[in-house]
Design a binder for these strands. Structure first.
Lengths: 213, 213
DNA sequence: GGTAGTATAATACGAACGTATGAAGGAGGT
DNA sequence: ACCTCCTTCATACGTTCGTATTATACTACC
């Protein structure tokens, strides 16, 4: 009768890792409701009961997938922001780091979207990470504004404009590939896409001092 | 045994309209799998069998929701692009029209996202609309490039950078509101957000002729 | 070697799902 | 009045869902 949550299970057996990894893929592709416990356990090569045993419920597994997936992004962005260089250069680095991170974790954008669009409350860890990433961009922008290299404007809104681009381009990559024949699986194309976004961001932020009006 | 599809049902009874409208809301909030036929019919005030009768299946209703929702966006954007003005001015108009359209159809971004992220093939109508919208932006950009008002760069990629912003800001509005305290439900704030994006887009595209290097 | 404690396995259960079926209503034409 | 067609209704069917239950294997320690 009681679950007594067999174990919080952050330290991982092999089964636990397989379940989380498989669940991330399937949740990403088919959503929470579209993914059955049977599909996860079968694909992970475990017994049907494994999710209940290790996590307590499907919902609890979902939350583990979310926190393990979304959290690390901030570390990457913060590392890029801490490099040497002007604010604009560091912003460029953050954008590239964001692209790289999303490219290495292709299931993430879809998971994030499902969180954002679902009617359910957004898990605190996801919200905090997002908030931290916006704050990171905004503070770099503010720094550039105070030294005169970045044009005026609300730094948080500018940060949202910037963040939108890696997210959208990664998320919609399949449709973009089919609809606009831009295939980001091809490394060469990917570089072009990232460079284009970096150029756009740089141009969108830069202060242009008119020597004479 | 045979469905024989009772009727293609584009001309609408009241029941049909209620089903489509309710389905749009629920699919948007909870996804295809997260929305039951019983939930739709109950909320629409119809009988459980109404979806099967009028559409043939839940999947067929979903496709009607998609095509009726996604299609009209292009009309709005094309109308904005056809106004008088410089390419940059018309681009600004398109961005504003896109924001307006998404604001008037708040269920759409979520539906689009589900399409883009799901593993299932993207319905042709959605793909075509997206393609047409990118092409619209890209041709305005190309026009501005040839008259020297817009800086160099791949117009399609620049179009994606632009389109990303209204989509993302609308889609993530709940998270942005909770995480960044920017509430787009407030009309005044919404104007600030749209203006900020328009500024960013303008700055990101504009060619700055340096009189002296 | 027996005994705990932990992990896996097979199966069972009740609920909810999408859809099918057949009966009942209701308006229009003859 | 009657028949016809369209729509609504109540209910049934078979499937699949998440989770519970119980039994079996494996490991460590006395």
């Amino acid at each position: 009768m009681n679950q007594s949550s067999p174990v919080p299970d952050s330290a991982g057996s092999e089964t636990v890792a397989a379940l989380v990894s498989t669940a991330r893929q399937l949740f990403s592709k088919h959503g929470f409701d579209g993914t059955s416990v049977r599909a996860i356990t079968a694909r992970a090569g475990t017994n049907l009961g494994a999710i209940t045993y290790h996590f307590g419920s499907k919902q609890a597994l979902y939350e583990v997938v979310i926190s393990e997936g979304v959290g690390p992004s901030h570390l990457r962005l913060a590392a890029a922001a801490a490099e040497d260089g002007s604010p604009l250069q560091r912003l460029e680095g953050v954008v590239r780091a964001f692209f790289d991170f999303l490219h290495e974790n292709p299931d993430l954008p879809s998971l994030m979207m499902q969180l954002l669009t679902s009617a359910r409350p957004i898990p605190p860890v996801a919200l905090q990470t997002m908030q931290a990433n916006i704050k990171l961009l905004a503070s770099l922008i503010a720094e550039g504004q105070s030294d005169g290299s970045i044009r005026a404007g609300d730094p948080r809104l500018m940060a949202l404009s910037i963040g939108a681009q890696p997210i959208w381009l990664t998320l919609a990559r399949r449709a973009i590939q089919e609809g606009a024949k831009i295939d980001q699986e091809d490394p060469h194309t990917r570089v072009r896409v990232v460079d284009s976004v970096v150029d756009f961001v740089r141009a969108g932020l830069e202060e242009h001092l008119e020597t004479a009006e």
